[in-house]
Design a binder for these strands. Structure first.
Lengths: 104, 104
DNA sequence: TTGACATGCAACCATTTGGTTGCCTATTAT
DNA sequence: ATAATAGGCAACCAAATGGTTGCATGTCAA
């Protein structure tokens, strides 16, 4: 789970996931296209995404196809974000109240 | 948005949010209690959470009370995670299919 | 008023991170 | 066969990160 959060912390990596979301199964050079980064930098980002299980790859001859795995993202939504949504309105009300105590 | 992802990337900070979720409005020393970190380290983490707008504070005499702000977490769920949930099953099917091409 | 308590500030440190360059290997197309 | 293409590996680098220690300040209680 920590791997996933860490992987998602970087904007370049989120952009790569966005690209795969737009078009799945791209090669490394596809994914490099138009980015202000060397291929090696992208390779490293993809390795981190792969380690976090956010991306799966298939070798196909000399190219490597990258596929988005949405499961870990979904799990963060389920296991982590939802927790904070329960009691969200209550927390907000309390927060507002306490912030206004300032002016008393 | 990037601030929020970065803030959530650290397990210690997520633990602090968990603590505030369990009991809102804790002071700095409350939050330090039982953690294997100096007070100053916790201060820095809280500053990052505050900068990301995940925590709001109220000074109350010599103590500083910390309140969880659940809005940014909710926004990540809405604006980012949901995007990847649309077409999630489709992506998974495709992923499975491509991974199995390996064995052809 | 004076000591204890809650927090703030700043300098410093090691490690991690995000990136680079240079070169090597494997596969495909001519 | 050979050149071009797709990717891999490793060393290196600067900056950010997560942590520390030491000291200063503000507030409360005896």
């Amino acid at each position: 789970m920590d791997d996933v959060f860490k992987a998602l912390a970087d904007a370049s990596r989120r952009a790569l996931l966005d690209r795969l979301h737009a078009r799945n199964g791209q090669t490394l050079t596809d994914l490099c296209d138009g980015l202000a980064m060397t291929r090696q930098a992208v390779t490293k980002h993809l390795a981190i995404l792969e380690a976090a299980n956010l991306v799966a790859t298939v070798r196909h001859g000399r190219e490597k196809l990258h596929y988005l795995n949405p499961v870990p993202i979904h799990q963060i939504g389920e296991r982590w974000i939802r927790k904070f949504e329960r009691g969200r309105l209550a927390a907000l009300g309390e927060l507002k109240r306490k912030l206004e105590e300032r002016d008393e």
